[in-house]
Design a protein around this nucleic acid. Structure first.
Length: 832
RNA sequence: GCGAGAGUGGCGGAACUGGUAGACGCACUAGACUUAGGAUCUAGCGCCCUUCGGGUGUGGGGGUUCAACUCCCCCCUCUCGCACCA
């Protein structure tokens, strides 16, 4: 053993010390201060499933770096955390372990909160909220009642997505490839009564506003736009021959209406039975409807059925030319979209084309492209583009666009049609037949119908004295003390709604409640939301690109229209971080490739885990977890620790102004590298949160520090320059490895806490290279290098390059055609 | 099928508005210090050819340019999203 005492980076002691200090001093408590510029940093809050996983660690580390960085930049930062605490797992656990969901949930919250604190995330824990708390969901119930009164909440009976395993209904957004988003079981259609939020009223705004979300990834916006799915077109009424009924269709191509040679309607269409009744096709149609229904249920997700249909035995009349058109029912027509009936134009729609060919239905060309002429005899596929109308009476010769307008006008004038826009987006069904959720505040009275719970009676709290049985059914449905109530209108006997709300309702507005979590006079405190909202930076997984983000946008507009907010959009900037994967695939128990944050934190400390998750990949990309890489991150911190302890123990006084002219070469090199590093790291964080390159820049700086102070060096580095470099390293790394930096900052004699120190600026003069390496190419190939002063003239540079011995050799006898000089970069000699 | 994104050493990843491809880290190899080292330090590390020195190289093929990972065209592969939306 040498005489040198071993320098030990005791991360346990360091992290415990700072963790406790931050907690006891409420170091990250935020309060409104109109004199300061605010910054609201938010990460998607977790479901308290039991323990945090690597995805959380990554997500929250990224957010924490931003929060701490913005504080150093002088912003008044709001960085809250809470719990998305309602949901099915709590209920399942309750059934399995015979405990109460609340107990399970709160125990998980306690544990996970400790885990988050162990990671050193700089949350304002005073603002912590759990959505299962009546103090939270009471306001959601108030929103519900207010929206009901505005007609934005309604009840209807529809075919819903039923998950047998979860014993509940799912929203369209929660069905993925025909499977339940939570448990992966096949979803069944089922007729049910449920409550709906009228999100379709906001479809237009939700779509239009996408254009203003410049801080969102294009990918997410595209997904939202597709989900909303706007199509502009017309609605046209086709009278049914021999009946009083009319068949209403929706089309985006009214210009092709003269080419309609049959109608196809969805098998579920209410008219199907009536149309075929009494015709010779009645039996066939009934069989087809039944068969299609079974087929649709049994088909694999994503699988496309072969186009099939049957004639209903009836005709309708094209109101434009009085032609008789046969009505078919076809398996590819969706009842849920448009009117559930379409006019079929085989010449100009591929599906109709295939259908017409299969059943020998005539094809009629009514659109001709500009560059060629379509012939029925040679038509191999539908022509779906626009063109010039033909065979369309008085509309002949118009181009598609003008014709659409003219045809819609004509229909409107005659009263059998009008312009119409449809959306793919459906209203949001929020009824869940579960216990562990926010009760829907409605009362059903035999006499008065559906009545909202009076606002002063809110909240309707979840009863706690409930028993769960193995059936998995919600105990609320059979809990008399809960559902038995009186009608607020007639005081008669009435029944309380026993369904609870979709948990996505809670997460649709939690970001706003964080601004005033303890406010009791209403859901939101005006001064607080006006100061803090909107969220400046939101960070979470891309898996929420549609569900949560769309609902949150919708709720923001609702809260605005209820007068609680003035903003239109909740999240100014969105970062969707990639997944954490191991051995090429997503971490999962079944694959056995799960890495537990606890084990890592125990072995290396929170700072190392944070550092590696930032270093291994840029945030938006998937991160391949690598145990040896973590080791590398740990090694780096040890290196920095060793350097600082070895070089800075003696003094805190060597912190004076640096005069560059008086420095020796080595000192100047380090001084320059320090300022270049500050410039690089600031840019990497500010521009696109590329922490991986920021960290590698600091690694370069520390490598320089070591090599310039090593035993082989002849020049002694100025102590002030070393101090400047060390201070910079600590400041630059602080947002990423805060315990580590705070400790060393203190140990190196700083009196002020690093938590309140500003982000360093760089001196452009100091960062400037005093010698540049210029590459010399001959015919595009690198043949030599030149050391020159930065401000050398192009002519001088050219002369020096041409004079170079190696370059001479390569030019040889060939003739110089051209010399390209790029300032501060290269010289390319073109010769042949 | 449609839409979006991505293909760079053994691996994770760098490369500004076209201008030294492979920063930084991991792994690996050799050496130093050591009773020992999985600690630390030094050096090397795309591929090919014999060292000097060359050649070649960013999924494949064309093109623009003095110069292409970067721009244009065609193709291949992977990931994600949508999927009969009339």
């Amino acid at each position: 053993m040498t005489s040198e005492p071993e320098i030990k980076y005791d991360f346990n002691a360091i992290e415990q010390k700072w963790r406790e200090r931050w907690l006891s001093t409420h170091a990250f408590k935020a309060s409104e201060d109109p004199s300061r510029k605010k910054y609201y940093q938010l990460e998607m809050f977790p479901y308290p499933s039991g323990r945090i996983h690597m995805g959380h660690v990554r997500n929250y580390t990224i957010g924490d770096v931003v929060a701490r960085y913005k504080r150093m930049k002088g912003f008044n930062v709001l960085h809250p955390m809470g719990w998305d605490a309602f949901g099915l797992p709590a209920e399942n656990a309750a059934i399995k372990n015979n405990t109460h969901p609340a107990k399970w949930t709160y125990e998980n919250i306690d544990y996970m909160k400790k885990q988050l604190q162990r990671m050193g995330f700089s949350y304002d824990w005073n603002r912590e909220l759990a959505t299962c708390n009546p103090d939270y969901y009471r306001w959601e119930q108030l929103f519900f009642v207010k929206l009901f009164k505005k007609g934005l909440v309604y009840q209807k009976k529809t075919t819903v997505n039923w998950c047998e395993d979860c014993q509940t209904v799912l929203a369209n957004e929660q069905v993925i490839d025909g499977l339940c988003w939570r448990c992966d079981h096949q979803v069944q259609p089922r007729e049910m009564n449920g409550w709906f939020f009228k999100i379709t009223d906001y479809a237009e705004e939700l779509l239009a506003e996408c254009d203003n979300l410049t801080g969102w990834p294009e990918k997410v916006l595209t997904m939202q736009r597709n989900w909303i799915g706007k199509s502009v077109g017309a609605e046209v009424d086709f009278p049914v021959e021999g009946m009083d009924d009319i068949l209403q269709i929706f089309t985006t191509r009214p210009d092709t209406i003269f080419g309609a040679t049959f109608m196809s309607i969805a098998p579920e269409h209410p008219l199907v039975e009536k149309l075929s009744k009494g015709t010779t096709h009645e039996k066939e149609v009934a069989e087809f409807v039944l068969r299609t229904k079974n087929l649709k249920q049994g088909k694999k997700p994503g699988e496309e059925l072969e186009k099939e249909g049957v004639f209903t035995g009836r005709y309708c009349i094209n109101p434009f030319n009085d032609e008789r058109i046969p009505i078919y029912t076809a398996n590819f027509v969706l009842m849920e979209y448009g009117t559930g009936a379409v006019m079929a134009v085989p010449a100009h729609d591929q599906r109709d084309f295939e259908f017409a060919q299969k059943y020998g239905i005539p094809i009629k060309i009514v659109i001709q492209p500009a560059n060629r002429t379509l012939e029925i005899s040679s038509l191999e596929a539908a022509y779906c583009e626009s063109g010039v109308l033909t065979g369309s009476a008085e509309f002949d010769g118009l181009d598609s666009e003008k014709a659409q307008e003219a045809i819609i006008n004509h229909a409107a004038q005659k009263g059998f049609g009008k312009a119409r826009t449809t959306f793919r987006l459906r209203d949001w069904g929020i009824s869940r037949q579960r216990y562990w959720g926010a009760p829907i505040p409605m009362i059903s009275c035999q006499k008065c119908g559906m009545q909202p719970v009076p606002e002063e009676d809110l909240p309707i709290s979840l009863p706690t004295d409930v028993k769960f049985d193995k059936s998995g059914k919600s105990p609320l449905h059979t809990l008399k003390s809960f559902y038995q109530t009186t009608c607020p209108s007639c005081q008669g006997e009435a029944r309380r709604e026993t369904d609870t709300m979709d948990t996505f309702v809670e997460s649709s507005w939690y970001f706003a409640r964080y601004t005033c979590p303890d406010f009791t006079d209403g859901p939101l405190k005006k001064e607080a939301v006006d100061y803090w909202l909107s969220v400046d930076q939101y960070i979470g997984g891309v898996e929420h690109a549609i569900l949560h983000l769309l609902y949150s946008r919708f709720f923001t507009k609702i809260m605005r229209d209820l007068g609680y907010l003035t903003i239109d959009e909740p999240f100014k900037n969105l970062l969707t971080q990639g997944m954490v994967i191991k051995d090429g695939s997503k971490m999962s128990k079944s694959k056995g490739n799960v890495v537990d944050p606890n084990d890592l934190v125990e072995k290396y400390g929170a700072d190392t885990v944070r550092l590696f998750s930032l270093f291994a990949a840029p945030p938006e990309r998937d991160l391949e977890w690598n145990d040896q890489g973590v080791e590398g991150a740990f090694r780096f911190l040890n290196r920095v620790y060793r350097f600082i302890v070895a070089n800075c123990d003696s003094t805190s006084k060597a912190r004076t102004e640096i005069d560059p002219d008086r420095l020796n070469n080595a000192s100047r090199t380090l001084h320059r590298k320090t300022h270049q590093t500050i410039r690089k790291v600031s840019g990497d964080i500010e521009v696109n949160f590329h922490f991986n390159t920021a960290i590698s820049a600091v690694m370069e700086l520390t490598n320089t520090m070591f090599s310039l102070t090593g035993e082989a060096t002849t020049e002694k580095i100025d102590q002030t320059v070393i101090r400047e470099a060390v201070d910079s390293v600590l400041l630059l790394l602080y947002p990423m490895v805060p315990h580590f930096c705070a400790e060393l900052w203190e140990q190196t004699g700083h009196l002020d806490s690093l938590d309140h120190t500003a982000w360093p600026g760089f001196n452009p003069e100091a960062a400037k290279e005093d010698e540049l390496t210029i590459v010399i190419q001959v015919n595009g190939k690198v043949r030599g290098r030149l050391q020159v002063a930065p401000d050398i003239s192009e002519e001088d540079l050219k002369q020096q390059a041409l004079a170079d011995e190696k370059i001479q050799k390569f030019i040889g006898e060939t003739k110089i055609r051209k010399v390209i000089v790029v300032k501060n970069k290269l010289v390319n000699v073109v010769a042949n």
